[in-house]
Design a binder for these strands. Structure first.
Lengths: 132, 132
DNA sequence: CAATTGATGTAATAACATAACATCTGCAAT
DNA sequence: ATTGCAGATGTTATGTTATTACATCAATTG
């Protein structure tokens, strides 16, 4: 899927996420955009919904937050399942892909005749700097 | 870790989860326990916290719900990372383990000198019956 | 008994997410 | 050009999930 032109609100939300050091909650994004006229959570959630659909933003289920995709220029969908390592101390997120992991998980679901729609892999812990 | 004797509230919450067909939210558990004297969310969350610690209950991050561990008698911790396939139609949850997936993920984090604490693998989709 | 610890009870509030409805804007069809 | 539609936006209210703060209670132990 190619990313369509972003609307005004989508661009604002995406810019905030791109400039952020780490993942942000929807309400944090809202606060950062009040100066730009944002008044209600729905403005953020609606933009996020599209950005997620386009694959330029990821949702981190385990911390109810959102990050810009770490692979600008690539089409995230081409990488298969995206995995995240999330530092619980500094908030830094590392995004990665592992075809063998995808293969094993998809092999298992195929054996169960389960039809996967969306897969979440999130590793919470401490990054090298914070673990020291 | 061996599971200690459960307290009254822990037992009540665990029983509700064991008898349930699928995952339950904390507030659903609360409603089911009002007859047993539960009045506030915290009574549920506190019990869940311990049950999660003992490994007899799992939290499904992507749907903000909880399930009893599908491997009674086993110590879940001995299985390494637990993965879930969650049917978005009927709510059924399948729990499984894959050592190769664990190995790949842990290999990756080791390469990053990341110290993992808790890993989530959740596949949402449709179970065989619902996909038909 | 006093002190400590872990479990519990209760109220209030914080944090996350969606429903429902109104309005606006750009554009295609006639 | 105007009508009609679709998508985006604005606004209010509400629903859902989770935690903070503080009080009480029960069992244990020094």
């Amino acid at each position: 899927m190619t990313t369509p032109q972003l609307t005004k609100n989508q661009s604002l939300v995406f810019d905030v996420l791109e400039k952020a050091e780490g993942p942000l909650s929807a309400y944090t994004i809202l606060d950062k955009l009040r100066d730009h006229g944002f008044r209600a959570p729905l403005q953020v959630y609606r933009a996020l919904e599209k950005l997620l659909e386009y694959g330029v933003v990821h949702r981190l289920e385990s911390i109810n937050s959102f990050v810009a995709c770490a692979h600008p220029g690539d089409d995230c969908h081409s990488h298969g399942i995206v995995a995240f390592a999330i530092c619980e101390s500094c908030g830094q997120v590392m995004e990665f892909h592992d075809h063998e992991v995808d293969h094993r998980l998809m092999g298992w679901v195929r054996g169960q005749k389960f039809k996967p729609a969306k897969t979440t892999i999130e590793i919470r812990g401490l990054c090298e700097a914070c673990a020291a």
